[in-house]
Amino acid sequence: MIIAEQKPLDEIMEMISGVEKLLVLGCRGCVAVCSAGGDKEVGVLASALRLGRKKAGKPIEIDEETYVRQCDPEYLEPLKEDGKKYDAVLSMACGVGVNFIADRCPGVNVLPALNTTFYGANLSSGEWAEMCAGCGACILHLTGGLCPVARCAKSLSNGPCGGSVGGRCEINKDVPCIWHQICDKLTSRKQDQLLREIVPIRDWRPSGHGGPRRRIREDLLP
């Protein structure tokens, strides 16, 4: 799931300083699941903005709406016209949603309310951690299902660096050394031969270093 978090309120207030009529637009996709931009967060943010503007002596008119998703064209259809009624649309979707609105709804002034952070999992209530970097060339079958590209501070391919102590990463004791875990896992599965083989230098093109990525399934094309 895509994890995001709300921008600091001051930053959002600054962003909408000239706006008099605003639509706070949530998304029921990933950001709702990670409690960053669903119905509830839309309500809370809208109220906070109303209060903030009222206090500043510049009251604002805010409507609230939450779409099923902001990353599929059919759901954005109503926004094409409705969005023009507002000075700005504050999207609480991930960056994909904001971009897609900007692409698909000309004339709508879309602003981001969230910082999109990573692809992660919900460790426990209120806690999320990065699990995948979307690098486009998965090697998890070689690493016991644990991703060194996303979860190693240096994205190492060939084992833990010299800073791994007691199963912790050198950059922060709160960060587990994923390579230590990979070593343990492969050793216990008797796959430690994998640890002895040199993993060749990566091709980073699928990771986005070859330019913006696109996926096409020809059989599904219209």
Partner: peptide, 14 residues
């Protein structure tokens, strides 16, 4: 921004 295009072992190999 840390580059880490490769690691030390891949560097040696290169």
């Amino acid at each position: 921004k840390g580059v880490f295009d490769m690691d030390s072992i891949q560097l040696l190999d290169m």
